[in-house]
């Protein structure tokens, strides 16, 4: 089963060298284990497209509620929810304070 892990932005300082190295190792390991299918970081803000009746409204970011915005994602393929939690736990250990959400992916 697939899970999407999304991580919210934090307003801490820019990540240092050690964190980069640890993350790179972590991503490499997960890829080697056949767990990590895709991952990436997301730009702050982005473009919001809203629809209401026949009207489509396109708004450029940044938006006020920046803290709730998703800053990165990882799509993992695991055998159970517990495995997804375990992967996320290890990820959180590396990146420090903050919050990630995991949700099962259905389809395609």
């Amino acid at each position: 089963m697939r899970y999407l892990m999304t991580t919210k932005a934090t307003d801490t300082d820019a990540p240092d060298e050690t964190l980069y190295a640890e993350m790179a190792k972590f991503v490499e390991e997960l890829t080697a284990a056949g767990v990590l299918l895709a991952t990436g970081g997301l730009e702050a803000g982005g473009v919001r497209v809203a629809s209401s009746g026949d009207t489509i409204t396109v708004t450029d970011g940044p938006f006020t509620e920046a803290k709730e915005a998703v800053a990165g994602f990882a799509l993992v393929e695991v055998r159970s929810k517990e495995e997804a939690i375990e992967v996320t736990r290890r990820f959180r250990k590396i990146v420090g304070d903050g919050e990630s959400v995991i949700q099962q992916v259905f389809g395609p």
Binding site: A32, A33, G34, V35, E77, R79
Partner: peptide, 17 residues
């Protein structure tokens, strides 16, 4: 599907090794 997934996982692992 769980067997397919297990085989894929083994294959991906072997490809790294």
């Amino acid at each position: 599907p769980e067997l397919c997934l297990e085989a894929l996982r083994l294959g991906r692992l072997l490809a790294e090794l």
